[in-house]
Computed example of a mutant assay.
Amino acid sequence: MTRPPRLSPDEVSAALRDLPLWSGDTDGLRRSVELPTFGDAVAALVRIGFAAEAMDHHPDVDLRWRTLHLALVSHSAGGVTELDLDLARRIDAALPA
């Protein structure tokens, strides 16, 4: 499977305008989300896990009580690629508004 190339700083900045809950740069994207309960956070993590597995592209996740800290980077490309942007969109869709 061919991985997409690393995005330029301008491409990442433009993409982040459409992903307002995310921050980052060419080295990685980040988002934290606080859920109402620990169980809600675990359920959200499971939904994210299935979305990531379907893409064969996996986030770094840190679960602290009811808060998920998410980080996306395409290690094989050495930075952010279209895969990370696609996964960020899928994560946003898997989380409550």
Rank of each mutant, 00 (worst) to 15 (best):
Pro36Cys: 05
Pro36Lys: 06
Phe38Arg: 10
Phe38Glu: 05
Gly39Cys: 07
Gly39Lys: 15
Gly39Leu: 08
Gly39Ile: 06
Gly39Met: 12
Gly39Tyr: 12
Asp40Glu: 09
Asp40Tyr: 02
Asp40Phe: 02
Ala41Asp: 09
Ala41Met: 10
Ala41Ser: 13
Ala41Arg: 11
Val42Arg: 09
Val42His: 11
Ala43Trp: 00
Ala43Phe: 00
Ala44Lys: 06
Ala44Asp: 00
Leu45Gln: 15
Leu45Cys: 12
Leu45Gly: 15
Leu45Ile: 07
Leu45Phe: 03
Leu45Ser: 12
Val46Gly: 14
Val46Tyr: 00
Arg47Trp: 02
Arg47Asn: 09
Arg47Pro: 00
Ile48Met: 10
Ile48Glu: 04
Ile48Lys: 05
Ile48Cys: 12
Ile48Gln: 03
Ile48Pro: 01
Gly49Cys: 07
Gly49Ile: 06
Gly49Pro: 06
Gly49Gln: 03
Gly49Val: 07
Phe50Cys: 04
Phe50Ala: 12
Phe50Arg: 13
Phe50Glu: 14
Phe50Tyr: 12
Ala51Trp: 01
Ala51Ile: 10
Ala52Pro: 00
Glu53Trp: 08
Glu53Thr: 13
Glu53Ser: 15
Glu53Arg: 14
Ala54Glu: 14
Ala54Tyr: 02
Ala54Ile: 01
Ala54His: 11
Met55His: 07
Asp56Gly: 07
Asp56Pro: 02
Asp56Cys: 03
His57Met: 06
His58Leu: 07
His58Cys: 06
His58Val: 08
Pro59Phe: 02
Asp60His: 14
Asp60Trp: 10
Asp60Pro: 01
Val61Thr: 11
Val61Ser: 03
Asp62Trp: 03
Asp62Lys: 07
Leu63Pro: 01
Leu63Asn: 14
Leu63Val: 10
Leu63Cys: 04
Leu63Trp: 02
Leu63Tyr: 01
Arg64Lys: 09
Arg64Met: 01
Arg64Pro: 00
Trp65Met: 06
Trp65Asn: 05
Trp65Asp: 03
Trp65Ile: 03
Arg66Tyr: 02
Arg66Ala: 06
Thr67Asp: 04
Thr67Ser: 08
Leu68Thr: 03
His69Cys: 03
His69Arg: 13
His69Tyr: 08
Leu70Ile: 12
Leu70Phe: 01
Leu70Val: 03
Ala71Gly: 14
Leu72Tyr: 11
Leu72Ser: 07
Leu72Lys: 08
Val73Ser: 13
Val73Arg: 15
Val73Tyr: 01
Ser74Tyr: 11
Ser74Ile: 14
Ser74Thr: 15
Ser74Leu: 08
Ser74Lys: 13
Ser74His: 13
Ser74Pro: 09
His75Lys: 08
